[in-house]
Structure formats: structure tokens, C-alpha cells
Design a protein around this nucleic acid. Structure first.
Length: 115
DNA sequence: ATCTTGACCTCTA
DNA sequence: CTAGAGGCCAAGA
């Protein structure tokens, strides 16, 4: 709540929007930073998405469902405990094409049904 | 106030 | 195919 008097929800910080989108990611699905950024209107703002998730570490946000363009599990959470993300995704039914690479062809999800 | 860094992506050569 | 450069938003020094 950057500004409670702000009547325009679109004026919310990029972070909050990213969190909202990530929070709406259905289980067993994965999305990419670029898709989220593009969905929010910023094509090259994928970095900011990562920052948002960086601040989201320790929250209820399923950051493990967000992967990069190659389907590689990146992130601070993965850097500290790589097994958590992989196990979590596998537990949700996500298949891995390779070691540390999610099968985007089968589980790729983009924010469009939520609106 | 500026400069650098950071879970990235896309374009062009 | 690979390599390089640009861009985006935010936080920290």
C-alpha cells in the first residue's frame, strides 16, 4: 500500500503486481520472468521481476514456479537450497526435461486466465 | 543526488 | 549457431 489515497490500482509498485501475478500461478505450472514483465507492460523489465521475488523470499509467494527463459531454476532460494525448488515442483507434478531445467513445453503458463 | 548491482529478456551482427 | 549491446525497475553504497 504505497498510497492509500491512490484511486488508481495501476499505480501500484511493480513489485506488488508481480507478486499478484505470481500468487495466481496455478500449481503444476511454471512461468517466465519475461512473460510476467511483458504482461505488466514492460518487456525488458524481467530483472525487476526477479528483484520483486527476491524481496518475496520467505513469503507465501510460490517463487519456485517462476523460472527463466531456459526453464532453469534460478534464484536466491535455489542458490541456498536447490533441492527445495526441484522437489517442490516435482511434488506439484512438474516434469523436468533436464537436470535443473523444467519442461516448459508441457507446463508453460502465462497470465491471461486471471483477467 | 549518482553509480553499481541484481533470480532477465530481446534485438542485432 | 554464438557474441555483444541495450533496456527495464528498484535497492544499496
Amino acid at each position: 500500500m504505497p498510497d492509500p489515497n491512490n484511486p488508481d490500482p495501476s499505480s501500484d509498485s511493480f513489485f506488488e503486481r508481480v507478486w499478484a501475478v505470481v500468487a495466481e500461478i496455478p500449481p503444476g505450472r511454471v512461468t517466465t520472468y519475461g512473460d510476467i514483465a511483458a504482461y505488466l507492460g514492460r518487456r525488458g523489465a524481467a530483472r525487476t521481476v526477479g528483484w520483486a521475488l527476491n524481496e518475496a523470499v520467505g513469503t507465501d509467494l510460490p517463487c519456485h514456479r517462476v523460472v527463466n527463459r531456459y526453464g532453469a531454476l534460478t534464484g536466491r532460494r535455489h542458490f541456498e537450497t536447490p533441492h527445495v525448488m526441484e522437489e517442490r515442483l516435482r511434488s506439484e507434478g512438474v516434469t523436468f526435461a533436464d537436470e535443473g531445467h523444467v519442461d516448459l513445453e508441457q507446463h508453460r503458463w502465462v497470465p491471461e486466465d486471471e483477467l
